[in-house]
Write a protein that binds this DNA or RNA. Structure first.
Lengths: 194, 194, 194, 194
DNA sequence: TATGAATGAGAGTTCATTCAT
DNA sequence: GATGAATGAACTCTCATTCAT
């Protein structure tokens, strides 16, 4: 379908530009140019700039959810899953820096309506992690705690460090190196049963 | 001093508006109106909108640094300091919601120059926490790890949860209630010596 | 083409306003109003106010170049060409006062970038005159001298007088009357071979 | 008198800045800073920015008039006076570039009131030259023509070339070199009796 | 006499969105 | 379906000038 092709190109262009420059600094003209489509065409597929942004984020979160699901289904022990999720985040940073930049930069949109939707996407991801934690708690693999709170805490733990690692200074290089191991250990100490 | 009065009113108005609506959604006219000064007066005290934003953030981080210093100087054990810092963050959320909103929303500004400065302020705060952690490690009160990485991880841990708690739904109320205890425990488990 | 229509109306409005009030005193809003278009439409056709100004000047210099070319191609003797060029300048003053005002008023714009471009347009016109002079020198019709210098000198000679003649006082009326003859004679005495 | 000292410093600062950047690009703050006085002090001595500009121009034209008077009083033949006036213009360009820039750039102010006054200053200078030409005509040293028209023509002749010579390219250097001789010759051919 | 804080209209420019073709 | 010309409110920032001290 031609339709899907154009929409996909718009989302890809939007992802790159939103990640590089942020939401406000990215104009519809720039997206149209980068996607090789007309402005009119964009409005044919998306109702507004907000909708493009949401489509981009949906795709990103969807990918992360799929990665998480894939890990879960391998039946590994909880500590191993946590280690791998942390590793995955750092691998994304190395291979698809834009993806991390995107989530780091467009964290909390300023328009109330958009913010609510972005936070809903984030909640969906957090809820999935919470579900995993909950099952681990019931199986005695993970210490009991408030699952959603713990999920957000883990997300924050990792994202704060990867966010800092986006800078291109000496510190960032250090964090990239020791981050995966240190964060996985830290997370596991926080989560393991007594 | 009359000078300080106007500048202070501008910073206060900016803080409230930036927190409520974010950086881009807050215009100079709105700040002027809210502060009860003319637009010209704003530019007499601040070179640009960016500078107002930075002044607001500097004030916020300064306050947090002072709180942290005050805690440290009491000579409490590390676990207690951590517990109190977490409590402080949640207390701020209850008493000065705007302060948490501000830091949550203006996490990573989109303009490169502004972003660099905001991140420098954040780094200053993180470095202070890292210094505290480092002393704790040398005294055997805290497990050895990369101090700055750990500082960012702790910040992220707390901020992700307080950020979620800003919403005014049922979940947010739950997080507000169990947050302080759960997060302090979680952090301590991650930090305590073997 | 509709395109050309709007752009042309913008240039015409700009020409009139720049001539009447000068570059700085003419705002984009005034141009939009005078052209009967929206401000947005202006920026659709021109990147900046400078660009409108340059388009206006390009049109003016283009017209003058065409007039000069047309004269040249008639194969008249040099003295006759000079007489007619001077006459043409005064005729423009009578028929299109705005054209003379424009060039007189926006002689040397204050912004370096704009000034460079305006002077390049002027140089193009001067260079054409210089080429004509050079051919005349080689044919022995015109006394040998530095061609470009002489071209600028002739331009200045005429423009200083037409500039003064823009005022609407008694002196201006005198200059309008005697100007064509006196200036043509003066120029020819300066240029004719020994 | 302190008064005169401050006013003089303001005029000097204004002259430099107006020449370098033009009228609009030069702000009152910049003049105050360059003159080492307060903005309030400027308004104590000058009613407006226009008045500073006029004071600057008055000083410039006054100097030129004095130079012209000094030349006249030496009782030289007309051709020699003309040669020396042209030389003087080029010498000014070499020694006080700013003076030539000033007159070249702020040629025709955009505010009607200011423009009228600037043109009046120019007319005063032209009228003096015209008076000299008139005496020369009566003495048979100079060919009969409209004196004021001829004065403006001579001014334009020289100023167009010196204006072009302000650029700092190869052509400008050429004009600086051959200008004095060529222009003086050209002017004399235009003026000398049959 | 001298200061510089304060004013606020107005500048050029941007940009998401619409809609006639 | 697809285009991109057109809109105009809103943006940040400048600046000559005033006036209380």
């Amino acid at each position: 379908m031609n339709t899907a092709v154009l929409a996909e190109r718009i989302v890809e262009a939007g992802k790159r530009l939103f990640a590089e420059q942020g939401f406000h600094a990215t104009g519809m003209r720039a997206i149209a140019r980068a996607a090789g489509v007309s402005i009119g065409a964009i409005y044919h597929y998306f109702a507004s700039k907000d909708e493009i942004f949401l489509a981009v984020l949906r795709q990103e979160y969807e990918r992360r959810l799929q990665e998480a699901r894939a890990l879960w289904e391998q039946g590994l022990p909880a500590s191993e899953i946590i280690r791998r999720v942390v590793e995955l985040h750092f691998a994304t940073l190395a291979g698809h820096k834009e993806s991390v930049q995107l989530l780091s930069r467009a964290w909390a949109p300023e328009t109330p309506a958009l913010r609510a939707q972005v936070q809903a996407l984030r909640e969906e991801y957090a809820a999935y992690i919470a579900k995993f934690l909950e099952e681990g708690m019931e199986a005695g693999q993970i210490r009991r705690s408030h699952p959603l709170l713990t999920a957000y805490a883990l997300l924050g733990l990792v994202e704060a460090v990867t966010g800092r690692a986006l800078a291109e200074d000496e510190v960032a290089r250090e964090l990239l190196e020791v981050g995966p191991t240190e964060l996985a250990d830290m997370a596991w100490r926080a989560l393991r049963p007594k």
